[in-house]
């Protein structure tokens, strides 16, 4: 079908290796670097990065339409809304 981008094997392989390397980094930083509270933040930053890599090259939103990107982004935005407003309530109770 014309107009649809075929992701080559090489790109898929590089994506996979990147993800494995990032997983190793996640484990190493969590187990051998003690940052206290900040450990989770770091792990989340790496996880978000990994998820973005999967979304862009495996799914592959990089070659997709803006409509499909918007669908994905808006669901994330609304989840954040649920979290932020519920948290505001739970942490401002007397």
């Amino acid at each position: 079908m014309s107009g649809h981008h075929v992701v080559p094997f090489k790109t898929n392989l590089i994506t996979f290796i990147t993800l494995v390397v990032l997983t190793v980094i996640t484990v190493l930083t969590a187990k051998y670097v003690d940052l206290g509270e900040f450990n989770l933040t770091l792990a989340m930053v790496i996880a978000t990065f990994k998820a973005t890599v999967v979304a862009l090259w495996f799914m592959p939103l990089k070659y997709d339409t803006w409509m499909n990107r918007t669908i994905m982004l808006s669901s994330i935005a609304f989840v954040s809304l649920l979290f932020v407003i519920s948290a505001v309530d739970l942490f401002t109770r007397a």
Binding site: F16, L19, F58
Partner: peptide, 11 residues
Amino acid sequence: LSSFTMAQAVT
């Protein structure tokens, strides 16, 4: 790994 092979299956 399974995600990689799945992406490749789509390709």
